[in-house]
Design a protein around this nucleic acid. Structure first.
Lengths: 252, 252
DNA sequence: CGAGCCGTTGAGGGGATTCAAGCTCAGTGG
DNA sequence: CCACTGAGCTTGAATCCCCTCAACGGCTCG
C-alpha cells in the first residue's frame, strides 16, 4: 500500500535542512547556480528553510516583501483575486523556480503563493541578494533570466491553458505537470505526477470543477491517467501525446 | 469630417525623429527615465526610430534579438502561435513600454510583435544598453522594474481577459485600452480610443469574432461605445464603469 | 454513526460557436 | 457611371459545449 503524500508531513524546525547553499541539490537549476561556491559559503546568507504542507500559504498578495524564495521541492501556485472576489490560479512553480522576485524591487507581492504539494522552500532575504549581487555580477544577469522565464511561463499559460476546448486544456495541464517534476527524476513511460483537486483544476483552466471531473474520469477510462493515492496519478506519456495530437487533428 | 487614422501614414526615413533621447517626450515613463540626461547625451547610443503602420511587424518570434525597443507612440500586440497553428494575442503594449527585453539576455524573441495602430518605436541596440548599464546602475534596476511590470501585465491578462462571460471580457478590454492611451492626454468623459477589429478582439479574448461583434454592437446601442472612424471609438467612461459594476453585481 | 469533504454522474438550460446570409464601403475596371 | 469584387461588420438560426443545480457514494474524522 502506498502512503498518501498528504499524510506525510515534512520535518519541521531548525536543523531539518542543511544550511549549505553550495551543496544544495537544486543549485545548478536555481538562482545561485550562477554564483561561485566559494562566494556562497563566505557570505552569511541567512537563508532559512521553509516547509509547507498542501494548502499552506507562503505569502499573501499585498504583503511588503522582504525576501525572495527558491523552490527546492514540491509545487506552488500563484493565486489572484479579481475585483469581484473570483479566484484564479495564474501560474505554477516547481523545483528550481525563483518566486517573489518583486521583493527585490521593494514592491509588495502581487499574488498569493500557496503550496500544492508538500514543499521545501528557501527564504532569501532581499538584502542578502543585493549584497551578493554587488560581488557577483553574474547574479544580476541570472535574476533577469528568471524574470524572463517567468514572463514566458505566464504567456504560455494563457495560450495553453486558457484557449480551446476543455478537453485539450486538461491534456495541456497534464503535459505541463509532467514538466514540473524534479529534473533529476528520470521519467519512465508512466511517471507519477501531482494531480490537482478538481476545483483547483477548474481555477487553473477557467472551467467548472464538474467539467474537470468529467474529463479526468474520461481520461482514466481511456488509460491516459491512473490515480495512485490522493492527489497523485500515473500518466501514460505516450497516450497523452497521442491524445493531444488527436485533439489537434480534429480541430485542424 | 475626421481623417481615419489608418489613412494617415507616419513620416518615414531619417530626420523624421529627433535624435535626442534626453528630450524625449515619453522619457519620464520609459526605460531611460532612470538615466541622467547628461549620461544619455554623452553616449553614442545609436538609437534608431522605427515607424510602423497597422499590421506591420516589428520582429518575429525566433529572430535572434539584437535590440530592445521603447514604444513612443501607438499600440503594439504580442502574438503567439500554438502548436496547431492557432494564433493568440497574449499582451498589448503602449507608450512608454519596453519590449523585446529578452534580447538583453541574448535570447531569441519569444513572440511576434505587430503594430495595432500607427506606431513610433525606438530601436536600442543591446550593447548600447549594456554599456549604459555599467555606468548607471540605476538602469539595471529600472530594467528589472520593466520585467516585473510585464509579468504583472501578463498575469492580469489571464484574469481579466480570459475569465468570465464574454460580455465582461469585452468590457475589461475596453477598460484596458483606455489605460493604454498616452498618459499626457487628459481623458474627458468620452475619450477616443483604439477599437480593435472584431477578429483581433477574438484573438485577445479567446472568443469567436461573431461573439465580439455582437457584444460591441450591443454596447453601442447602450451608449457605452460610439465609433468614430475606422478602428476608433469614443468610450463613455462612466457608462463603462457602471456596466462593469452591473456585470459583477449580477454574478455575485 | 453522522458530518463533511471530495469526486462522480445525471438532467436541464444557457451562452457561445458554427454556418450562413446580407450589409456597407473602398477600390477596380469595364 | 456603375457593376464587380473583397474585406470587414452585422445579424439570424441551429447546434453544441459547458455551466448550473442536484443527488449520490466513498472516505476520513470527530
Amino acid at each position: 500500500m502506498l502512503m498518501p503524500v498528504r499524510a506525510m508531513p515534512l520535518p519541521r524546525g531548525p536543523g531539518a535542512e542543511p544550511p549549505s547553499c553550495s551543496a544544495c541539490q537544486v543549485r545548478p537549476h536555481a538562482l545561485f547556480g550562477a554564483v561561485e561556491a566559494a562566494a556562497l559559503d563566505e557570505a552569511p546568507l541567512a537563508v532559512k528553510p521553509v516547509a509547507l504542507e498542501p494548502g499552506e500559504r507562503l505569502y499573501a498578495q499585498g504583503d511588503s516583501g522582504w525576501s525572495v524564495f527558491t523552490v527546492r521541492e514540491g509545487i506552488v501556485r500563484f493565486e489572484r483575486f479579481s475585483e469581484r472576489g473570483e479566484r484564479r490560479i495564474v501560474r505554477l512553480a516547481g523545483p528550481g523556480a525563483l518566486i517573489g522576485q518583486e521583493a527585490i524591487l521593494q514592491r509588495p507581492y502581487v499574488d498569493d503563493v500557496v503550496a500544492c504539494t508538500p514543499a521545501r522552500i528557501c527564504r532569501i532575504p532581499r538584502n542578502a541578494v543585493e549584497r551578493l549581487a554587488q560581488q557577483q555580477p553574474s547574479l544580476v544577469r541570472e535574476l533577469m533570466n528568471r524574470w524572463q522565464t517567468a514572463l514566458e511561463a505566464a504567456a504560455q499559460w494563457t495560450t495553453d491553458l486558457n484557449s480551446g476546448p476543455a478537453r485539450r486544456r486538461v491534456l495541456k495541464l497534464l503535459h505541463q505537470l509532467q514538466q514540473l517534476q524534479p529534473p533529476q527524476q528520470v521519467a519512465g513511460a508512466r511517471a507519477p505526477i501531482w494531480l490537482p483537486q478538481r476545483d483547483e483544476m477548474g481555477l487553473m483552466l477557467g472551467m467548472a470543477q464538474e467539467t474537470a471531473s468529467r474529463i479526468v474520469s474520461l481520461l482514466r477510462r481511456e488509460g491516459v491517467l491512473e490515480p495512485c493515492g490522493p492527489g497523485r496519478a500515473w500518466v501514460d506519456a505516450e497516450l497523452l501525446r497521442l491524445a493531444l495530437l488527436e485533439q489537434d487533428r480534429l480541430a485542424g
